[in-house]
Simulated assay, not measured.
Amino acid sequence: MKLQINIHKIATNVLKKEAEAVLQLASLLQDSDFEACVEAILDCAGRVVITGIGKSAIIAQKIVATLNSTGTPALFMHAADAIHGDLGMIQANDFVIAISKSGNTPEIKMLVPLLKRTGVQMAALVGNKNSYLAQQSDFILDASVDSEACPLNLAPTTSTTTALALGDALAVCLLEARNFTSEDFARYHPGGTLGKRLYLRVADLFGQHDLPTVNPQATVSEIIMEITSKRLGATAVVDTDSKLLGIITDGDIRRMLNRHTDLSGIKATDLMNTTPKTIEADEYAVKALEQMQHYNITQLVVLRDGQLAGFVHLHDLLREGLV
């Protein structure tokens, strides 16, 4: 079916309209209560409860998820359900954010007096500063837009994008004010690849392998047997006190075979790299991946307090889904 519209032009106009509206928020911050709202949430002993109806409720749920994952305890309360029992989740030391483009929807107008009776502080994330919701709130977060990206100026598009962006700005300000670290983030995101990038350490990986080692006088045959049997593509060369002297990779073996036909006099000391790439056992596994990618290698020597502990291989990182 041949469409009679310019898809690219329409999509571009939508994106430009929404981008311009988000940029406009920066200028609105100066005249809103945004900074005071951040400070009030930081001083709040309870949770941030975010409410809304319709598309605003969906945006509220996303902001709640972002706050929870960045160190600010938050709950979602649907505005319609609140007036049918869910208001019971509100505690006196909570902080409420109500999201509404118009600020005058029937559910919001019914809910606001009930919220005020609980004694909680309330912020209006609103598109109309003169609305009932804005005038009844302690803080106004101005998310005004000139128009929706919808050509009918009806479907919530630009308004929901700006509300979401303002929620992200709020979450990031709170994150930085709380000195929230990547280690804190990892505690809230233990699952999936993201979690593993933040908590998985080299020590969690290398212990599953037998440690391949040869002495400095090992023959080529002994070296090949050790590399083959341990299946890591390399072996460490150690002295009698197990001190690391260097490593030999299967690549070193192949390059040696291209140069020599008589292998009888070649020892490990003739082949080993005396400055191998290493990583400490308590380092994050993602750092091992970064090193392998930077140096275009497939394994690293693992050290613990400067002493040889094992090898970590690219396949270990692949198996954990880090690549």
Rank of each mutant, 00 (worst) to 15 (best):
L271A: 07
R117D: 06
V112E: 01
T118G: 00
K55F: 10
Q299D: 08
A124K: 00
A163Q: 15
F95L: 00
V145W: 00
E35V: 14
N93Q: 13
R201V: 13
V214K: 01
A80S: 15
L211M: 13
A82V: 02
T181Q: 06
A11C: 12
V202G: 06
I266H: 06
V126W: 03
L141C: 01
F206C: 00
D94E: 12
T213G: 02
Q299N: 15
M122L: 15
R201M: 11
V64I: 02
F185S: 05
L300R: 10
A65L: 04
G306L: 07
D262H: 08
K287Q: 13
L133C: 05
D252R: 06
A149W: 06
F95N: 02
H84L: 08
I59V: 15
L300I: 13
G52F: 13
A134G: 07
I140Y: 13
R178W: 08
R231G: 05
T240W: 10
G306T: 08
V126E: 05
S242F: 15
A186Y: 07
V38L: 05
A80T: 15
H84R: 06
I247E: 03
I224R: 06
R319A: 11
L152D: 12
G192A: 08
N6Q: 11
V202S: 01
L152K: 01
L314I: 15
A288Y: 12
Q136K: 13
I59R: 03
S137H: 10
G71P: 01
M256S: 09
T70A: 06
T162S: 07
T228F: 04
D241S: 12
G119K: 02
P156L: 00
D146E: 12
A124W: 02
G265I: 04
G54M: 11
A285V: 15
A60C: 03
I279F: 14
K267A: 02
K243M: 10
I223M: 03
C44D: 11
T158L: 02
V312C: 08
T51Y: 13
G54K: 05
H260Y: 15
D204I: 09
L200C: 03
L75N: 09
L67E: 05
K62G: 03
L263E: 13
A21C: 08
Q307D: 08
K62L: 06
P113W: 09
D204R: 09
G119D: 05
V22D: 02
T158K: 01
V202Q: 04
N273W: 10
I97A: 02
V38E: 01
M1G: 15
I247L: 04
V120K: 06
